[in-house]
Design a protein around this nucleic acid. Structure first.
Lengths: 207, 207
DNA sequence: ACCTGAACACCGTTCAAGT
DNA sequence: ACCTGAACACCGTTCAAGT
């Protein structure tokens, strides 16, 4: 972090923590390493967060809040609105893949997730959903989106390399072809994600 | 673990580790605690596994291998075969929810996942899929299934309680109704998962 | 009000030594 | 061949003390 102008605040730790994780991975983020990066003692963070878990939650929250802000509104249609929300979350995790595992580990409910949920409900209402179906369709989209992101990104980049090696070891021509390059595997994964969200939305709101 | 009859083997550690995690959660599983449960020194595990990560991977592998063995074959149709595979994985994670986070953390490719993949490909081939579409549809199902399981189960039971509180805090009648009981939230989550896998399979193989 | 730095109670893991 | 137990190099976190 560049020029230290006196005391730090929560935002400084969130920014530095996110940048550190992007560069060195989640496992490398220790309070001591973060302190060193900020030119501060390892325990300085505890002035602003009660625990490491809370810092990590705040980092994820900031990431998703930025994703929300990147969504242009209003959407052309409720369907487009939903897909844009889902894609914004996906983009956020692609940008900060090492935070994927954190979503699963960290406890606490995040304001940004609340906003995402409320936006989602509003869009589903415009598709004339109500009652239990409204809740079920919302949760289906949330579990698909968050789940796929966590599963596809976590352990980056080892995770993708493992997937590629598995593809190659199957002895199935179609998979061997895709697995010739890392790019092949990752673009296939993104295409699968897109196809999945289309399938899910189609199931309750046919085009 | 009951009667110690001499030396332990890999299976003993896998069994004890899984049982311990089921009872006390993933965070409580330390090498020292596991050793104590088995009436053995904390470092005894290193005779059978090179690291804690490898033990955890073996635990997940054993869980998924058991899931595979629980599948009756042959299926009534390729579609039924796919759904049975997906449900078997879901059941495994419902039984051992604390292992969900491990799938995401652990590195290494598991024999059981390889078998699941090969079975899935065979079933998709019976649905006349080929080329890139075969790979994409397989990966769509894998990411959905594994991802949703990880997202829905991890952090159990705190995770579900947080979801319930979020439902209640939205001020949306439909969600408040579902969130009256934990059972309401969890059965809604399972219904959403079922609807999702139906939607995904329908998208490339209409009923 | 914020940071320091020593200290505490843990971790996973290594390795010489036991049997 | 398998286990022990001391030891190492770390963790997250607390708390009295500084400024």
């Amino acid at each position: 972090m560049s020029a230290r102008t006196g005391n730090l605040d929560q935002q400084d730790f969130i920014r530095a923590g996110t940048q550190f994780v992007d560069e060195h991975g989640l496992q490398a983020l220790t309070m001591r390493a973060l302190g060193e990066k900020l030119g501060v003692d390892a325990t300085a963070c505890y002035r602003h967060f009660t625990s490491k878990d809370e810092l990590l939650s705040a980092m994820v929250d900031a990431m998703l809040a930025a994703a929300l802000d990147s969504i242009e509104s209003p959407p052309a249609s409720p369907r487009d609105g939903l897909i844009e929300h889902v894609r914004a979350v996906r983009r956020a995790f692609l940008k900060h893949p090492h935070l994927a595992a954190t979503l699963v580990t960290s406890t606490g409910d995040l304001p940004s997730v609340r906003r995402l949920t409320l936006n989602g409900i509003e869009l589903l209402r415009l598709m004339v959903l109500e009652g239990d179906e409204l809740v079920r369709c919302y949760q289906m989209i949330e579990s698909y989106t968050m789940g796929s992101c966590v599963f596809d990104m976590s352990g980056t980049p080892d995770n993708m390399e493992i997937r590629r090696l598995r593809y190659r070891s199957l002895g199935v021509k179609e998979f061997t072809d895709v697995a010739r390059t890392m790019k092949g595997v990752s673009s296939m994964t993104e295409a699968a994600f897109e196809a999945g969200i289309d399938a899910i939305i189609d199931s309750f709101s046919p085009r």
